[in-house]
Design a protein around this nucleic acid. Structure first.
Length: 490
RNA sequence: GGGCCAUUAGCUCAGUCGGUAGAGCACCUGACUUUUAAUCAGGGUGUCCCAGGUUCGAAUCCUGGAUGGCUCACCA
């Protein structure tokens, strides 16, 4: 950008930067180490009064009164007032502060006192310039509201909107608590490939990329599932991965093309173990990070305390849609019930798929309290084990809260013959035009043929969980840099 | 992808009937040694999202486009 094109506010800051240099101050100078965070000084005022401290931070307000000036510094933890006096600092150092703008980083050293109005303040004996800000910050009362700017320039959002910073700190702590909870239970954190030859483990379209040296297409993973189960074959009995997955789908307030999941696999475990793990871990991390397990999400209150409600999909559909699939034994009668309920069906849907359509349309919005829906139709669960004596259904559950899915778990299918057939069925769907159906993963079958112990597997959508635990209405409020179209440049 | 809405100063926003753009904060100049939305006096800093069109004249009306939000579809 040309100097001529800078607006007046930016020109003024550059002028001041030049004046700092003229007076021997490097505008991007050395670090200053703080002795305390802002909040520590305020909280420990009784002990710290009159003792000398050093605070560092960004200048977020200035009130100049001629020969005395007040300002607030914002650091990682909060804000604290600092006080400059001409008679204390001397002409040179006092007048130098006139070259500071809102947004600059400085350090202030001096004794702690309380002003007439009662605010804990650091009186500068000396102060240091650390970094110049060349762009004006958003306005102090209203902050930055433009959501597009907030997402595109999250750094500004974080500077001026304290609650945004707190949400992302909470997100980090929730993930840390999750990691702790799993490690304490003896799970091993692992990392599996993000770039894969075959993107499997979920029903979704992948992103495609290209490896130049190998001259081949690679897919960004849509799930971590199939690699983690290979590790169960290898004898790593309890593994999990917290990681980014990528799905080439639409964007909404509950969907971002890249999002974070935790997938957890446990040998010698089943669906019931996974339910207990889900409700216990989520309850635990909420307690640890939020100090409560009572959640209010967008005005709806619910409790995370286990045990959560358990309903089979058929029970849920009977309860909320008033349709009893136990009495609809074939596809024709199921389709008839759908027509009667005004449910639009795609061509060729089977009884299980129609059941799921009923569930999604009539039940999901009712599942505000944490609820496990279990016993899913086999057609939509190609990686889950069949229920003994009821082979059209699988040992699978999904966990819901606030009407949204946050967890998906199975007793894992470990029969390689059955798994191959399931993949074949998926391939048939793919040939029929379903580009979200699974592809065949021969190596995964190969692994199962070596033998995989009975196991339970669980996936949790971290972003959604964080949304619920931080009362965030949009997934973009819990992803630092959500996917956006690039701004058109002229 | 469809529908609806939004886009005006660095930020938050007004802008009437189509007559050529305003406020607060921020910023600049001056005063002020415990202020805190500091105060007081003065100063408007602009590609009205972009490109066409209608018109004597467009921030305003029309068409197309861009970006974002909500929503439906799809997904987690």
């Amino acid at each position: 950008m040309d100097q001529e094109n800078l607006n007046e506010l930016m020109q003024s800051r550059r002028r001041k930067m030049a004046q700092l240099r003229e007076r021997g101050i490097e505008p991007y100078g050395k670090k200053v180490k703080a002795s305390h965070y802002s909040t520590e000084i305020i909280e420990q005022f009784a002990e710290l009064e009159n003792s000398v401290v050093t605070v560092t931070g960004r200048i977020v307000s200035i009130r100049a009164h001629g020969k005395a000036t007040f300002a607030h510094l914002q650091d990682y933890k909060g804000r604290i007032q600092v006080y400059f006096r001409l008679d204390q600092l001397g002409e040179e150092k006092y007048s130098l502060f006139e070259l500071c703008d809102l947004g600059d980083f400085i350090g202030v050293r001096g004794p702690v006192f309380r002003t007439r109005k009662g605010e804990v303040t650091v009186a500068a004996d000396d102060w240091y310039f650390m970094a110049k800000s060349l762009r004006p910050l958003p306005e102090k009362w209203h902050g930055l509201k433009d959501v597009e700017l907030r997402y595109r320039q999250r750094y500004v959002d974080l500077i001026v909107n304290q609650e945004v910073k707190e949400t992302f700190i909470k997100r980090s702590r929730l993930i840390q608590a999750l990691r702790d909870a799993l490690n304490e239970r003896g799970f091993l954190e692992v990392e599996t490939p993000i770039m894969q030859n075959i993107a499997g483990g979920a029903l979704a379209r992948p992103f495609v990329t290209y490896h130049n040296a190998l001259g081949m297409k690679l897919y960004l993973r849509i799930a971590t599932e199939l690699h983690l189960k290979r590790l169960l074959v290898g004898g790593l009995d309890k593994v999990y991965e917290i990681g980014r997955v990528f799905r080439n789908e639409g964007i909404s307030s509950f969907h971002n093309p890249e999002f974070t999941t935790v997938e957890i696999y446990q040998s010698y475990a089943d669906l019931d173990d996974m339910m207990e793990l889900t409700e216990n871990v989520i309850y635990e991390i909420a307690q640890r990070v939020l100090g409560t397990s009572r959640i209010t999400y967008q005005g709806v209150e619910f409790a995370l305390k286990p045990p959560w409600t358990r309903l089979t999909m058929i029970e849920a559909v009977r309860k909320y849609a008033g349709v009893d699939f136990n009495k609809l034994s074939d596809t024709a009668s199921a389709a008839q019930a759908a027509a009667k309920a005004g449910l639009e069906l795609e061509k060729g849907m089977t009884r299980g798929e129609i059941l799921n359509a009923f569930f999604e349309s009539f039940c999901e919005p009712h599942l505000q309290e944490p609820t496990f829906i279990h016993d899913y139709p086999i057609e939509i669960s190609p990686l889950a084990k069949r229920i003994e004596g009821n082979p059209q259904f699988t040992y699978r559950f999904e966990g819901f809260m606030a009407g949204k899915e946050i967890a998906n778990a199975f007793t894992e299918l470990n029969d390689p013959i059955d798994q191959r057939e399931r993949f074949e069925q998926q391939l048939a769907k793919r040939r029929a035009g379903d580009d979200e159906a699974h592809v065949m993963d021969e190596d995964f079958i190969n692994a199962l043929e070596y033998g995989m112990p009975p196991a339970g597997g669980l996936g949790i959508g971290i972003d959604r969980l964080v949304m619920f635990l931080t009362d965030s209405p949009s997934i973009r409020d819990v992803i630092l840099f959500p996917t956006l179209r690039p701004r058109a440049e002229e």
